[in-house]
Design a protein around this nucleic acid. Structure first.
Length: 576
DNA sequence: GCCGTTTTCGGCCCGACTGTTTTCAGTCG
C-alpha cells in the first residue's frame, strides 16, 4: 500500500486532534500540526521524501516524527494512531468544530456522559445533563445549543469574494459610527485566504463602550456572541461571524499586525523577538532584555518589522512559509498591484455561455482602462455551455477583425477556451486554431481520471503548438469540489518548455492555480495569466481581488502576462 | 515533539472574554 503526501498530512492532523482530546502537552500537539502544515505545502513524492532520508534533514521533522512516518510508509498503517483511535471514537473530532467546545469539554462530556456525537451532545444540553456537570452551567449548555444550531444553519466557511464584500459593507457601516476614529480590515481577509470563517476588524476609538454598543446593534448584525470593552463578536445576517477589536491610536500598528496574523507568522515573530531580548504582542513591542518591560514605540507595521531586523512583510505573505527568512535578507519581491493589470485574456460572450456581446465586453474593458482583451468562448465539446464549432469560431474571428478596425490604442484578440479531450487532443481543428490570436486550453470533462493520466493529458495539451494558456488547471470549485491531481513538476516543466502560461483563474469559486504553488512555479520560470473567466461584465471585478491572490503567490508584474505591454504580449502570443 | 552561537535539557507566544467560580480554566484567535 502506497501512502501519498495528502494521506500523510491527514494522519498527522488526526494525531494532533486526538492528542488534544487526550490533553497532551500543547507543544507536542503543535509539532504534529506544524509537520502537517509543512508537508501540505511541499511538492514532493512523499514516499521518496521519507525513504531517501530527506525528511530527517527537514526542519520540524525530528526523530520521533521521522520514525513514525517511516513506519507509515513501510506498513501503510501507524500503530501510534491506531492506539489513539482506540481511546477516542472518531466522531468526537466533529465535536471540536462546535464553537465554544474545545478538547477539555469534549473529553469531559465523553467520559462523564458518554457523549460521542453532535446529536448526543444536543440531547445532553437539552435534558440538563451538561448543566449538571461540575464547572458547567445552564449558560454553557445554552451556548453550546446555539453553536450547534448556527453550525447547522450555515456552512462555516465562506468564499473570499462573498466574505470580502460583506466585510466592506460592515467597514463602511462602522466608519459611520460616532466616536470611531479608524477602522481597518485584519485577519485572513487581509491576508487573502481563499476561504474564510469570519471577518476581523480593528478600530481606534476613545469611546470603546459606545462604539461596541453601536456595533452590536447594526442592522447587519443578527446576534451578539460576546461584548467586551476591547473585543466583541457578532453573527451577521448572512451567517458570517464578525469580530471587532478596539484599541487606542498608539496601539493601532501593533494591534493591526497582531490581528492580521497568521497565527503561525505571529508565533514565528514572537519567537524571533524573544531571541533578541524583546517581546511582541497585540499591545506592543517591548524590550525585556534587562528584566523589565520597556515599550518600543512603533507607529506603523513597517516599524515593527524593522525593529525585529526585517523588512516589511506584506499581509498576503504572512503565512510563515518563508517570508520571514526572505525579509531577513533585506530584499522582498515587488509584488504586483492593481495598477499593473492591463487586460483580460479569458472571457465569454453570449455565443457560448456568457451574457454579453463582444462589443459590450470591449466597451467595458476600455472603460476599466485596459489596453487589450481576448475573447475566448468555449469550444464545441462543451455543449452544455453552447461551445463553438470551427464554423462559428471563424465567424466570430471575422467579427472581431472587423471590430478591431475601429479600435485605436486597444488590441482585441480573437481566441478560444479550447477543451482538452480525454486523450489530451484539442477540441478544434489545427488549421482553425492557427488562425486565432490566443488559444487557452482547459479540462471540462473526465475529472475523475487518476493523477498520472490527468498529467499526461494536460501535458499533451500544453505541447500542442497553438496552446498559450492552461486555464483553471485543477478544475477545483472551492467548498464544493476537489480538483483533480496533477504532477506539478511535470506540468510546470512542460509549461516552461512550451512557452505556455498557467492561469490564475480569479473566479471566487476557483482561484486556480492555488496560491501555494505559485512561488515555486515562478522560480521555475512559469508565466502567470490572471483572468476573471468573465461570463458577464460584473465578473471583471474579480480581478481586483485576483491581484491579491497573485501577491499571495509572491508574483511580480513581470511574472504575469496580463501586466505586460501589448508589444510584449504580442511577442509572447507569437502574433507580432 | 522539536530544537540548540547560554545546545542534549528546559524551554517552547500572548492576551481577551465567558462562565463558573471567589481566583481560575477553557476557548479562541
Amino acid at each position: 500500500m502506497v501512502i501519498d503526501r495528502k494521506e500523510a498530512v491527514a494522519v498527522l492532523e488526526e494525531i494532533a486532534l486526538l492528542l488534544e482530546l487526550k490533553g497532551e502537552n500543547a507543544f507536542k500537539i503543535r509539532a504534529y500540526e506544524n509537520a502537517a502544515r509543512a508537508l501540505s505545502t511541499m511538492e514532493i513524492d512523499f514516499e521518496t521524501f521519507v525513504r531517501s532520508g530527506e525528511i530527517a534533514k527537514t526542519k520540524g521533522f525530528g526523530k520521533a516524527l521521522v520514525e513514525k512516518l517511516i513506519v507509515l510508509v513501510e506498513t501503510g498503517t501507524l500503530p501510534f494512531l491506531e492506539e489513539l483511535r482506540a481511546v477516542f471514537p472518531a466522531s468526537l473530532l466533529k465535536l471540536l468544530q462546535i464553537n465554544g467546545v474545545g478538547p477539555k469539554k469534549v473529553s469531559l462530556f465523553y467520559h462523564k456522559l458518554g457523549v460521542t456525537s453532535v446529536d448526543e451532545l444536543e440531547a445532553a444540553c437539552k435534558d440538563g445533563r451538561i448543566a449538571g456537570l461540575s464547572g458547567m452551567g445552564k449558560k454553557t449548555a445554552d451556548n453550546i445549543l446555539a453553536s450547534i444550531e448556527r453550525s447547522r444553519r450555515f456552512e462555516s466557511f465562506f468564499h473570499y469574494y462573498t466574505a470580502r464584500l460583506t466585510a466592506d459593507q460592515l467597514l463602511a457601516a462602522l466608519r459611520d459610527i460616532t466616536g470611531v476614529q479608524k477602522i481597518e480590515l485584519a485577519g485572513s481577509l487581509r491576508r487573502f485566504r481563499e476561504v474564510t470563517k469570519d471577518i476581523d476588524i480593528l478600530g481606534v476609538s476613545e469611546q470603546p463602550a459606545a462604539v461596541m454598543a453601536a456595533f452590536t446593534t447594526l442592522p447587519l448584525v443578527a446576534e451578539t456572541l460576546s461584548r467586551g470593552r476591547t473585543k466583541s463578536s457578532v453573527v451577521l445576517t448572512n451567517g458570517m461571524q464578525a469580530d471587532l477589536r478596539l484599541v487606542a491610536e498608539s496601539e493601532f500598528a501593533n494591534a493591526l499586525q497582531h490581528f492580521t496574523g497568521s497565527k503561525e507568522h505571529n508565533v514565528a515573530l514572537r519567537s524571533r523577538a524573544q531571541s533578541r531580548g524583546m517581546k511582541v504582542s497585540e499591545w506592543g513591542l517591548f524590550d525585556v532584555s534587562n528584566g523589565g518591560e520597556t515599550l518600543i514605540p512603533c507607529d506603523s507595521e513597517e516599524a515593527i518589522y524593522k525593529k525585529l531586523g526585517l523588512c516589511y512583510v506584506p499581509p498576503e505573505l504572512r503565512e510563515n512559509l518563508g517570508e520571514i527568512e526572505c525579509a531577513e535578507t533585506g530584499v522582498m519581491p515587488t509584488l504586483v498591484t492593481e495598477a499593473d493589470y492591463r487586460g483580460v485574456l479569458h472571457c465569454h460572450t453570449f455565443a457560448s455561455d456568457g451574457a454579453n456581446s463582444v462589443a459590450e465586453l470591449v466597451a467595458h474593458a476600455r472603460g476599466a482602462g485596459h489596453s487589450f482583451l481576448a475573447i475566448t468562448d468555449h469550444s464545441k465539446s462543451s455543449f452544455q455551455a453552447n461551445g463553438l464549432n470551427e464554423e462559428r469560431i471563424l465567424k466570430q474571428l471575422e467579427q472581431i477583425r472587423d471590430l478591431q478596425k475601429d479600435l485605436k490604442d486597444f488590441r482585441l484578440y480573437a481566441g478560444v477556451e479550447c477543451d482538452i479531450l480525454l486523450n489530451g487532443d484539442l477540441d478544434l481543428d489545427d488549421d482553425v486554431l492557427k488562425q486565432l490570436d490566443i488559444v487557452i486550453v482547459s479540462v471540462h470533462s473526465g475529472f475523475s481520471r487518476n493523477k498520472r493520466d490527468m498529467t499526461e493529458r494536460v501535458v499533451r495539451a500544453i505541447e500542442h503548438p497553438c496552446s498559450r494558456v492552461l486555464a483553471h488547471p485543477t478544475g477545483r470549485l472551492l467548498l464544493r469540489r476537489e480538483g483533480y491531481e496533477l504532477d506539478w513538476d511535470v506540468v510546470m516543466a512542460a509549461a516552461v518548455a512550451n512557452n505556455v502560461a498557467i492561469e490564475l483563474n480569479c473566479n471566487p469559486l476557483r482561484l486556480d492555480m492555488d496560491w501555494r504553488l505559485w512561488r515555486r512555479a515562478r522560480d521555475q520560470g512559469v508565466r502567470c495569466s490572471l483572468n476573471p473567466d468573465a461570463h458577464r461584465l460584473s465578473h471583471f471585478d474579480f480581478v481586483r481581488f485576483g491581484i491579491g491572490f497573485c501577491r499571495k503567490g509572491w508574483l511580480t508584474a513581470n511574472d504575469i502576462v496580463n501586466c505586460w505591454s501589448t508589444d510584449e504580449l504580442n511577442q509572447f502570443l507569437g502574433h507580432p
